[in-house]
Amino acid sequence: MRKLLVIAVPLVMLLAGCTTPLPQPTPSATASPSASVSASAQPSQPPSEVSSPPTVSTSEPAETPELGGDDEPGRYAYRCGSLDASPEVQLSSLAEVWAATNYTRMASCDVSYEGGQPFEPTSAEEQAISTVTPGARPEEGLAVMLEVLRLCTRVSDETGPGGFKEAGHEALVAAAAFCPDAPQAKIIKGWADGTRTGAPQQ
Rank of each mutant, 00 (worst) to 15 (best):
R2D: 13
K3E: 10
L4V: 14
V6Q: 04
V9F: 08
P10R: 04
L14C: 14
G17M: 14
T20C: 10
T20D: 10
P25G: 02
T26F: 09
P27L: 14
S32R: 15
P33D: 15
S36G: 10
V37H: 08
V37D: 06
S38K: 14
P43T: 10
S44N: 07
Q45E: 09
P46H: 05
P47M: 08
S48Q: 11
V50G: 02
S51K: 11
S51D: 07
V56S: 04
S59N: 04
P65C: 04
E66L: 14
D71L: 11
Y76M: 03
A77W: 03
Y78R: 04
L83A: 10
D84E: 11
P87R: 08
E88R: 07
V89M: 03
S92V: 13
S92N: 15
L94M: 10
E96D: 15
V97D: 01
A99N: 09
T101H: 04
T101K: 13
T104V: 08
A107E: 10
P118W: 05
E120A: 11
T122S: 15
E125P: 00
E126I: 05
E126V: 09
Q127I: 01
A128W: 00
T131F: 02
G135Y: 06
R137L: 12
P138Q: 06
L142C: 07
A143I: 02
C152A: 15
T153E: 07
S156I: 01
S156A: 15
D157L: 03
G160R: 02
G160Y: 04
G162N: 06
G163Q: 01
F164Q: 00
E166P: 00
E166T: 06
E166V: 07
A167R: 10
H169T: 07
E170T: 09
L172G: 02
V173K: 11
F178Q: 00
A182I: 06
K186E: 12
I187R: 09
A192S: 14
T195Q: 03
Q202K: 12
